[in-house]
């Protein structure tokens, strides 16, 4: 790998691609909601800096992930056009960029917001890059559960940036994304069969079978409904959020039950129609929940949000 890497001459966009801009946009959104929902308000410039450096920290961990996973990214169809496997950047560049931006983002978040938030960001980068990517991803079929935890930290970091401490609301926002992630990816694994097998990444569908995966999806969907609706009764919830949560969780539970009841024959007969629908809706599910939390926060000053 090293020999052809010495030759490559990346353009600026290739470095941007190392930061996983699509994941970063999700980080920006959830961190922003966490920060806005918090009872303490930051100066707009401080808030902007906090979100920016949380996003850069997320990007840095993405770059470290691409550095370590270049070998399996080259095998999977979904990932083989990433900068390193396609030969556009060297893996050393990804490592350097990841380490440098990790340090910069933690330092700057500490200066812009507070050191408690910076410590959470540092832990998130460590958790995603080392505990998830390097250690557990290739070892355990619970990899998705652990990876989901890393993706769940941004709203908590946003909240801590504003308030300086963790509270029940921050933990519940974390828990919602944490619980949401596994069924989302297990549904994907049900209809995108071969990719993970080829790369030798242990997915639940392979290690414990597809019926077990269907049971897991249902169990997580139930847990997710409890958390999502429970969040409505904290200080960041309200009528708008509760309405959204009730509608969305009814749809998800209905789909999860039919995924659980179906067998492979039925799924193949309609080309995994329900599994695909579940996957597509779960993206909207998370977006709408955080949008509702944001709506509560924005409307509260006008007497329209929250429970009061």
């Amino acid at each position: 790998m090293a020999d052809h890497n010495a030759e490559c001459d990346p353009v600026f966009g290739d470095y941007v691609a190392l930061l996983k801009p699509r994941v970063m946009s999700l980080v920006v959104f959830t961190a922003f909601v966490g920060l806005m929902a918090a009872p303490v308000s930051l100066h707009p410039v401080e808030a902007f800096c906090a979100i920016l450096f949380i996003a850069i920290g997320g990007g840095a961990s993405g770059s470290l992930n691409m550095w370590w996973d270049a070998d399996i990214d080259a095998i999977m169809r979904r990932t083989k056009s990433r900068p390193i496997p396609s030969g556009r950047t060297s893996s050393d560049a990804a490592l350097g960029l990841g380490v440098a931006l990790s340090g910069l983002s933690v330092l700057m978040l500490g200066l812009a917001a507070n050191w408690h938030a910076a410590a959470w960001l540092a832990f998130t980068i460590f958790f995603y890059a080392v505990i998830y990517t390097i250690w557990l991803k290739r070892v355990t079929p619970q990899n998705i559960v652990i990876g989901g935890a890393a993706g769940a930290f941004p709203p908590l970091i946003g909240w801590v940036s504003a308030t300086g401490s963790v509270s029940i609301e921050a933990v519940l926002m974390f828990a919602l994304i944490f619980i949401w992630t596994p069924p989302h990816f297990w549904a994907l694994a049900l209809f995108m069969r071969s990719d993970y097998d080829d790369a030798d990444v242990p997915m639940l569908t392979v290690t414990h079978g597809r019926p077990a995966t269907r049971r897991h999806i249902l169990a997580y969907a139930v847990l997710q409904a409890v958390l999502a609706i429970g969040l409505a009764f904290t200080s960041i919830g309200g009528v708008i959020y509760l309405t959204v949560a009730l509608i969305c969780n009814t749809i998800v539970l209905k789909d999860a039950v039919s995924i659980w009841r179906r067998d492979e024959l039925a799924s193949e007969a309609d080309n995994f129609k329900v599994e695909r629908a579940f996957f597509r809706f779960s993206l909207l599910y998370l977006f709408v929940h955080f949008l509702a939390i944001l709506a509560e926060a924005v409307l509260t000053p006008y007497g329209l949000g929250g429970w009061s």
Partner: peptide, 12 residues
């Protein structure tokens, strides 16, 4: 190569 290097330099 010049075009690529310039893209990097200007971006940075």
């Amino acid at each position: 190569m010049h075009r690529r290097r310039r893209s990097q330099n200007v971006g940075v």
